[in-house]
Amino acid sequence: MSVDTATVRHIARLARIAVSDGEVEALLPELNNILGWVEQLQEVDVAGVEPMTAVIPNRQRLRADEVSDGAIREQVLANAPVAEHGFFAVPKVIE
């Protein structure tokens, strides 16, 4: 499988990364090289194999359903590029 420039633009859009025309041209062969190289996995016989999701057997733990955190608004907002009135601030999204 290989990608074309329209697909590169689509992926960039999904990934929320702005790309210039020049970057699309540069990314096209790079992504196709990598995708062509990983293509070899298709030759592996995986019949009956379950996809691996956890490398070391471990159980999912549940913690007690009680508040263990909070009241740290200043800390949460401390690194925000823009914070106003105790909130993260972003460009207007509703007209």
């Binding site: 298709q42 194999v49 691996m52």
Partner: peptide
Amino acid sequence: AYFNQAQKVRAL
């Protein structure tokens, strides 16, 4: 084709 296949090969 890609991710699930890779997870299976990882199991192998």
